[in-house]
Amino acid sequence: MSETIPDYITPEVKAVIGAEAPPVTARHAVESSEVRRFHQALIDNAPRFWNPESSRRYGGPVAPMGFPVHVFRRTEEEPDPLAMMDQPDYDGVDRALRPGLPPVLVPLKRLMNGGYEYELFRHARPGERIVLKSRYADIYQRNGRTGPIVFVVIDDSYETGTGEKLLRSTNTIILR
């Protein structure tokens, strides 16, 4: 018996490859206690995150390098993701992969983070508003033993509101 493997890279999906989001500014400035929760949950108490004496190189306490990746939180205009938790198949993950990027219309339910490539320039500091620029670098399909897998590759650039580079990343998201 032969099965036809669906091709999820439809013209609609191909059309969003290369799509760029307009720059999105985080709703809130980086907050000291948000940084504290982050480095404590990471179990990383490096003094540069909290001690002014130990952070002179950075101009004062700074956020962990990867902090900007997580500052784009739900705004007051967006629906509460927990409101859907009564749906047994809902996994709790927002399918809008980045603010400002169009959705990838693939009917695969499981989403996994495949990995990152980072280039790091500067820590974010409390009080700064972070600006994100994202684009779909590639979207492609591989057919594995467990069925088709779609890889969504996103280039992200994080800067301060005054245009200072913080970090760049290439993130691969796996849909299966």
Partner: peptide
């Protein structure tokens, strides 16, 4: 605080 972790890449 004297060097810099410039690039890092990994797969999960």
């Amino acid at each position: 605080d004297t060097g810099w972790a410039w690039k890092v890449a990994f797969q999960f």
